[in-house]
Computed example of a mutant assay.
Amino acid sequence: MPRNVTTAVAGVVITVCAVAAGAGAAVPGKLGTRDGYEDAGGPVWYWPVWFPIFAVALAATGVFLATRPAVHRPAAAVAAVLAAQIAGRAVVGVRDWFNADGAGVVDMSQHELATVVTVAAGIALAGTVAACFAVALLWREPARGWAALRPRSLRLLVAGAVVAVGVPGVIALAGSDAIMLAGTVALTAALPWGGGLAAAAWLGPRARKVTVRTVLACAATTVLTFPVTMLYLMVSHGYDVTSLFS
């Protein structure tokens, strides 16, 4: 019974973090003059299309944990991967808002810039807290002692390392201009997916399968929504998308 209560509480916390992340993503930037507070345009959006999808999925997973604590490990594995990707994207968001404003891609007053950066930092915190609670639920005191440190699946460990380190590493080799892109890919995709695959190497068969499937689902969703995300961001930033077809 104590374990069930702990799991239920963790599920509630994860749900709250997911709702906070989703609500934060709904807050747009507001274009304005740099030296004043007058509006110079409409809202500008940042978060990719997959972000609210993952926030909803994380909230649903948290509800499942709160209501079905007896089967917590597979759900916790799903929550850990989702929360890690949400947190990673939010960390990138803090940097991107500063870079976009500094490069003149968006023209925001300082108080508006402070608002969106604070929101992004809050989302990063919410995602991190959710990930920590999910990982805590996955932890099980090793019954085999130190022998349990040996991974159950060496292939998953190697695959996780390749994804987490190899993918951003290859991008970084393209030159100094690609360093920022490599960091974005690492935090947003490579580390959450690679870390999930590597961690699955120590999990039991059921949780391991769920983790691998979650990573594959997250990767597919991220890739498939990429064109929609780019179009969405172009429209948000005032780009005339009709010129693409003329």
Rank of each mutant, 00 (worst) to 15 (best):
R95H: 08
R95I: 01
R95G: 08
R95T: 05
D96T: 07
D96P: 01
D96Y: 06
D96S: 09
D96L: 11
W97A: 08
W97F: 11
W97Q: 06
W97E: 10
W97S: 01
F98C: 04
N99A: 15
A100T: 13
A100E: 14
D101E: 15
D101R: 12
G102P: 04
A103F: 14
G104A: 02
V105K: 13
V105I: 14
V106A: 04
V106I: 15
D107M: 02
M108G: 07
S109Q: 07
S109G: 14
S109F: 08
S109I: 05
S109P: 09
Q110Y: 13
Q110R: 14
Q110A: 14
H111A: 12
E112K: 00
E112H: 12
E112F: 09
L113M: 10
L113D: 08
L113K: 09
A114D: 12
A114N: 11
A114V: 09
T115D: 05
V116P: 00
V116E: 08
V116Y: 06
V117F: 00
V117H: 06
V117K: 09
T118Y: 06
T118N: 12
T118S: 15
V119L: 06
A120F: 07
A121V: 13
I123Q: 11
I123C: 08
A124V: 02
L125R: 05
L125Y: 00
L125A: 14
L125W: 05
L125V: 15
A126E: 10
A126Y: 04
A126Q: 07
A126W: 07
G127S: 05
G127M: 07
G127D: 02
G127E: 02
T128W: 04
V129R: 00
V129G: 10
V129L: 12
V129K: 05
V129E: 02
V129A: 04
A130P: 02
A131L: 10
A131P: 02
C132P: 06
C132T: 13
C132S: 12
F133Q: 04
F133L: 10
F133C: 13
A134C: 13
A134Y: 06
V135H: 03
A136T: 13
L137V: 08
L138N: 01
L138P: 11
W139D: 08
W139A: 10
R140N: 09
R140E: 12
R140K: 12
R140Y: 00
R140L: 05
E141F: 13
E141S: 14
E141Q: 15
P142E: 01
P142D: 03
P142T: 05
A143H: 14
A143F: 06
A143R: 15
